[in-house]
Design a protein around this nucleic acid. Structure first.
Lengths: 152, 152
DNA sequence: GGCGTTTATGTCGTGTGCGATGCAAATGTA
DNA sequence: TACATTTGCATCGCACACGACATAAACGCC
């Protein structure tokens, strides 16, 4: 093998890394209006779908660890977007629920997906392409999360 | 645009975000052996290709800002992987060059791309699919970096 | 030459991410 | 019932990312 594979341009992972950061940045103007960050937006997304989730359930849905989510949820609690309470049936668990303020942000967030998809669809990129990309990334996510489990 | 399409952005942006983190994690065991992080690996990649680059040239290649790269490069200088020197022709510029130690890491890094691609290729995902994904992400990167320039 | 503007880099503050580790509640098992 | 183990959450330390801002060198224009 020659050096060709060590060229930045031939790396597949770099575009994923860059696109991720740039997409987060594309969300920023919309999320700024709501006073939240992209990871906080993800937490809201899962809580708009589920009235009540434990910290552990959120980590599973967002593929983030508790050491990332715990401080993040605390910040969101301080912003009065959600409440954190110990479970009564299992004192180890912390149950997260949206406040009225958190629930109400849902309306404000509604137009965001449409704005984003407008940016990401082009002459060369159709919806079908996006769906295909989504499938591939999800398969990678499955592989890579399984990999991590195997290490334990 | 129907509901399914509205949710599309969250359905595709989140996988990009998650895949990026998981891929970085997949690199970790290999990079740990070299004592470097993924962003530091990216810096090495561009410096293995270019003997001498200014900080600004690196920011353009990696799409990172100076406020991210400056401390990162300082850490790499402390690790004796590279040198930072003011340009003689333009005192504003800082020229970055690899040390022998930095250059020598190239051999150790050579097997990494192959290892990674082994993980990412499956029954359902062929090399041609990966290349297609790369094309799409690169188009998004073009769009999103152009977007940022327009804001200035 | 004088001086406002641009350019290249850097610092600071905040918010993630995550490995390592701590700790208390729950669970399994002899 | 004792006690080792597991589970759920959290803290700590470090390394990104990035917006806002600072600073000095170079440039442009008169």
């Amino acid at each position: 093998m020659d050096d060709a594979q060590l060229k930045l341009s031939s790396q597949v992972c770099f575009p994923v890394y860059s696109a991720s950061r740039l997409i987060t940045k594309a969300y920023k103007p919309y999320l700024d209006e709501m006073g939240i960050t992209y990871p906080q937006y993800l937490v809201l997304l899962v809580l708009w779908e589920n009235d009540s989730l434990s910290v552990n359930q959120i980590t599973e849905k967002l593929l983030l660890n508790t050491n990332t989510l715990s401080p993040l949820l605390k910040r969101m609690e301080k912003m009065e977007l959600l409440q954190r309470n110990r479970s009564e049936t299992d004192e180890r668990s912390v149950i997260v629920q949206l406040t009225e303020k958190g629930k109400n942000l849902k309306d404000q967030a509604k137009p965001i997906p449409e704005q984003l998809i407008k940016i990401l669809l082009t002459e060369n990129i159709k919806i079908s392409d996006v769906l295909q990309l989504k499938e591939m990334l999800n398969e990678w996510i499955t592989i890579l999360t399984e990999d991590n489990k195997n290490l334990e």
